[in-house]
Design a binder for these strands. Sequence first.
RNA 1: GGCAGCGUAGCUCAGCGGUAGAGCAGGGGAAUCAUAAUCCCUUGGUCGGGGGUUCAAAUCCCUCCGCUGCUACCA
Length: 518
Amino acid sequence: MPATKHYYLTTPIYYVNDVPHIGHAYTSLACDTLARFMRLDGYDVKFLTGTDEHGQKVEKSAALAGLDPLAFTDRVSQNFRDMAKAFNFTNDDFIRTTEPRHIQAVQHLWQRLVERGEIYLGSYAGWYAVRDEAFYGEDELRDGPAGRKIAPTGAECEWVEEPSYFFRLAAWRDRLLAFYDANPDFILPAGKRNEVIAFVKTGLRDLSISRTTFKWGIPVPGDDAHIMYVWLDALANYITAVGYPNVAPDSEFARYWPADLHMVGKDILRFHAIYWPAFLMAADLAPPRRVFAHGWWTIEGQKMSKSLGNAIAPETLIESYGLDQTRYFLLREVPFGNDGDFSTRAVINRINGDLANDYGNLAQRVLSMIHKNCGAQVPTPGPFTEADQRLLAAAQGLLATTRHEMSLQAFNRALEALWAMIGDANRYVDEQAPWALRKTDPARMATVLYVLAETIRHVALLTQPFMPGASARLLDQLAVPVAQRDFTHLTPASALVPATALPAPQGLFPRHIEEAAP
RNA sequence: GGCAGCGUAGCUCAGCGGUAGAGCAGGGGAAUCAUAAUCCCUUGGUCGGGGGUUCAAAUCCCUCCGCUGCUACCA
């Protein structure tokens, strides 16, 4: 059965000069979970991540490391591939902006924009601090001795002018506003959307899109003195990866573009929600369907910062808590889109409360009763009571609920719905008390355990995108064939088959014992 | 300064015109299948302060206080 529904989602390309931390992992994790969900739900998914490898900082870091820039980026981009591997991310491609396919695509896009009159040569002028390598606005400066201008950092500034190509962004104000108006879910969450609209409403300036002050970038076609400035280069990766400029009807581009979702941190929302759709519309290409700006993590209440040195390496989390546990915590603890706090106490509460006690123990108490009292086989149910039918109906309703929440990137609410089901199942166990039925009514006990096993099957199928490892182990314990683990099997037609042999149950999520304080 | 948002139980938050809610934490109890897990009951808030509209306000309006975000080229 060929998939006819396509879903294309992307992480930002990470700046290769950075060391991967929890924030990078979080962005990619959200995408990975969504990608897995959509695949299980029958979509042909393309999930893209990669690295942004151009710019002055990279040029300098490479020089400092005694390497040419490409050799340098070859080395450090590996950090992000390692992160993806450690988290078991299922990205279908990993793009690097230094690849020939990208250089070709961006130059083609540039020429397209030139042909359409969207780019002109002007000059970029401003107060530049050599020490900081940065431009400052007039209002940021204070007067120093002898009429000199001083930056907030204390660096002395000079007036600099350099030739630069500009993109006619100002002209796109009204068309962008009309686009936001026609596509109310283009920017999520809603609060961020309002900020973007307010910004655009105040008016846009044309955007400087080339530089002559450094070399490490993509040359402007027909003018080698210029290289393209960061954002046009970086943003275009999203179309490079689907084969642009090949836009033929049978191309990958035709299949996947426009992207369904660009997942970004809130710091780069403007570039994705304003510049990018403007570039695309200017080139007569469709803008993406959605940009979602998620929040930041603080660490034990503290802002992550280089000076504090409190950034958490993604691998450390996995070593300390386990991969599935880390994935669960990050997506469950905070409403997606909000800022959140990462604290040891909160992680352990989630692991022990939600995973070990609620989910893991539910599976364990049910599977172990089946193992001991039903001959290690899926029990054979008798007639269902009203309570049985209620529980099974709730389980069958989970797909619709989680599908809706996932369509809004509300990962936390999808998980809440699954945990409400787990709570119902635990209550059902206590109400039905199968351990008492064992003596008084074994047939009824078998029915109760069957209903529970079938409910757990539904939950386990739906936790796969969030916790692939543990979910697979649980499905193994229920003897669910690997070929029957996509969401088309969330129906009674694929229910557990009585008398199927089951392996011995094993704990899913061990309780996390806090190490003794030093 | 301007624009936007927030301030509800110890903590994290939901509710957004009809006599205060959830999860976690705290207290008590039941049960014993299970990773001492589960289930039930329960303590706890004059919903930031003040004023107004209304038969009725966390919920609408005004004002004050406090906090946060945005206010362009930083990947």
